[in-house]
Design a protein around this nucleic acid. Structure first.
Lengths: 227, 227
DNA sequence: TAGATTGTTAATCGATTAACAATC
DNA sequence: TAGATTGTTAATCGATTAACAATC
């Protein structure tokens, strides 16, 4: 319960599997629920049970990044939350750009879930004159031509693409030119980017396809699909 | 080029890795783009290059389900599209229920990407009297109490949850009670479901977290994150 | 102390890659 | 035929699980 020394956590310079990082986000979400429900501490077996993972996996995942638990005791929720946020990089504030203010773009502008994790959409972009100058959910819509300028002013490092598929690659190129370092692409196309820019693709129809597959082939594979 | 015999494809009764199925969706999307661009055939190396996978992986993935290619020739796009749709179960029409007509729910009701893959949102549900009876993007909004009735009438097997996190589990329970067999959950909570109901979780904030991690830790892990 | 739970190692399991005979 | 490309096997690589000493 006491902190004997600032215990130097082995700064994991070994490559961290992608799957581990995605479970980290789930642990964080679950820990936040536990705290909201008044829990102060938890254990690898409780976290595992809540998420459908083994206790061994939870411990192994966390141990990639340091010694966050206390043998015989478990994990302090607060501490673990802080640690995971630090690992994920969400211990800071991330200004985010949204490109595209159609149905999906507008919905994402209003999505409350982002701000809880430190993401703040600070500017939206479009090329439709009808939409430029408007303020949606408190976010100003600029012409895409002003991307470089506005991104620099607001120190924007992350961008989301919510434009029609045929426009996505060109938008991605412009985000890169504006110095953006990471992109979430909601357009249903594979975009190609320089090696130094990270990206995540989210295709909503594909999520339904995965579901369709697992419903149709329910016979064997028991359980769920992705999270 | 000719079809000598209806060649009995080894009906993969061995368990198919989840990762294979998610790549199948990407192959399908890429094939559809190729066809739109006028291509008639493709190869494992072309598909791999377009998506960032090895040619061996593409062949192995497809071979789980049958013999779709022609040695020395490659794959006919049309045939492969048909085959993958059959495997994914998107060779048919899926009526889908949307629960929740807030920002996100409304955006999804208007999302065109679903219909291209055979998904048709045929009814929306809410509990806010203000919203009930409305028609959004051509979809009628019913009170959640009418879920059982409307789901049966429309033979709805799939549902999407776009309600606030605290309401998600209760909604999931009602979808199950209404005979729904698969759920895409957009609420940022883990929902628990009976074994015979499949589900996929999509947490938009988590996508940004994954991006944040890979931007912050750009040093080692080169490339992208998820697709 | 006895009971609980961690971090870590070794064993198992699964997925990806490389290589190549078969085929067009 | 020579060149291209598949489907599949074996080899490699990586991730998960089981087990347990160390710790509280």
């Amino acid at each position: 319960m006491s902190e004997p020394k600032p215990k130097p956590p082995p700064p994991a310079d070994i490559p961290v599997p992608k799957a581990v990082v995605s479970r980290l986000s789930l642990y964080l979400r679950e820990l936040q629920h536990l705290v909201r429900d008044g829990h102060q501490r938890t254990s690898s077996s409780q976290l595992g049970r809540l998420l459908g993972f083994s206790d061994a996996q939870v411990r192994k995942d966390l141990a990639y990044f340091g010694h966050f638990g206390h043998p015989g005791i478990g994990y302090r929720c607060d501490d673990l939350i802080k640690a995971i946020r630090k690992i994920l990089g969400t211990d800071r504030d991330w200004p985010v750009a949204m490109v595209g203010t159609g149905n999906l773009g507008r919905a994402l502008l209003g999505y409350k879930g982002f701000s809880h994790q430190g993401f703040r959409i600070v500017a939206a972009f479009d090329i439709d004159p009808q939409r430029i100058g408007a303020t949606i959910e408190g976010v100003r819509v600029f012409h895409l031509d002003r991307l470089v300028e506005v991104a620099a002013e607001n120190k924007i490092k992350l961008g989301m693409i919510a434009v029609p598929a045929p426009a996505a690659q060109a938008v991605a190129d412009r985000l890169v030119a504006a110095g953006i370092e990471g992109i979430v692409n909601f357009a249903p196309v594979t975009i190609s980017l320089p090696d130094n820019v990270r990206h995540v693709g989210v295709d909503l129809a594909i999520e339904l396809e995965q579901l369709s597959f697992s419903v149709v082939n329910r016979l064997n594979n028991n359980g769920s699909a992705t999270e």
